[in-house]
Each structure stands twice: as C-alpha cells, then as structure tokens.
C-alpha cells in the first residue's frame, strides 16, 4: 500500500467518525414525553403535572393484608424494620416516609431497593406478594383500612394491632426522632 492510499483510508475513517459525532436526529419526537410511573420527588420543573396512578391493590382486603403480614416475616422484613418500629431500617409505623407513602411509591421502594441499605426485591418475589406487602406496610401507620388490617399476631405482644392504629398524616421527609410523633 502506498502512502497516498494509506492517507485516504485514514481520512475516510476520520470522516466517518466525524459523521457520527455531528449526527443529529431531526425526526426525534421532541413533544412526546412519558411521565415516570412513580415520582420520588415532590418538585417538578415548572407546573406540577397530574399524578400518575398511585393506587394500591389490596388496601381494603383482609386476606391480602394478613398475607402481607405473614410475608413481612417470611422475607425477613422484620429483621430490619421490626414490627414497624424499625431496626437497621427505618420505622414504618410513624408518619415519616423517606421515599413516599403512596402505594406505588412503596411498591417502587420494595422492587427497586433504596441506596442506603434497602435491598432490591424486584425479580425475587412475585409481584402479587409485593402488593400484599405494600398494603401491610401502609397498615402499620393506619393508612390501610382499619376494618381489614390484621388484629392479631403470632409473636409475643410487642405493640398495638394494626387494626387499632389511628391513621397518621403521612409526610415525605427525613426522620428526625420520636419527639415529632403525634
């Protein structure tokens, strides 16, 4: 190969790379915006857009709530959150929610995990069971139906039953101690 041919090859490679570097997709559908299924932040750039569905599946279902309670023990949730008062993980029976109190937010927390030590259960437990856990987690602070929430435990008595918890006004915030509890 002579020098000129080599130069041509190099120039072709450089110009091809340059094409990629300068390419713009003028056909991109810039107006089509998909909102996320769940928002973790309470602020948005500009006007607050309408909520996507944050509904739970089993908030009023006694069987699903009791299943949620059983799974909460089986999957060792109790190891980190105790029976709602917290341990390695935060308390779940108070009004403070680090990652949101809406069912879809709790679902996302369980499935995705959270960076400061919450494992990601997505792909490890059935979807239906996650929703049962979501309903039970909400019952710990009285956010599920009191008529459907569990009223007994298989453990020794450590706290009032979930069915007897007064609904607490949830707040998305950093925990700052027992003094602010109602």
């Amino acid at each position: 190969m002579n020098v000129r041919a080599a130069c041509c090859v190099v120039a072709a490679i450089v110009s091809l790379a340059a094409c990629q570097r300068e390419k713009r997709d003028f056909e991109a559908p810039t107006k089509a915006v998909t909102p996320p299924p769940v928002r973790l932040s309470e602020i948005q750039p500009g006007a607050i857009s309408t909520k996507t569905s944050l509904e739970g599946k089993y908030e009023d279902n006694a069987f699903a709530l009791s299943e949620g309670k059983r799974l909460f023990g089986w999957y060792n949730c109790t190891g980190c959150h105790a029976h709602g008062g917290g341990d390695k993980g935060p308390a779940l029976m108070d009004r403070v929610w680090i990652y949101g109190s809406e069912p879809a937010q709790i679902y996302a927390t369980i499935v995705e995990g959270r960076p400061n030590g919450m494992p990601s259960f997505g792909g490890h437990i059935p979807d239906n069971e996650v929703w049962e856990l979501v309903a039970y987690v909400r019952s710990l602070s009285g956010l599920a139906s009191g008529m459907a929430s569990p009223n007994r435990s298989d453990t020794m008595h450590v706290k009032a039953p979930e069915s007897n918890v007064e609904a607490q006004q949830p707040v998305t915030a950093a925990p700052s101690g027992a003094s602010e509890r109602p």
Partner: peptide, 20 residues
C-alpha cells in the same frame, strides 16, 4: 442508642432488637 441514632419508634417494643 438506636432509638436516637436510627429514629426508632418505641411503640413497637421489639424495635431495634428489642432495645428500644
């Protein structure tokens, strides 16, 4: 000291390994 450092809730006697 988990009840302070971890903001644990004493309404659950078993919280923090039962220490709260």
């Amino acid at each position: 000291g988990g009840i302070v450092a971890g903001d644990l809730d004493a309404r659950d006697a078993s919280a923090g390994g039962g220490f709260v």
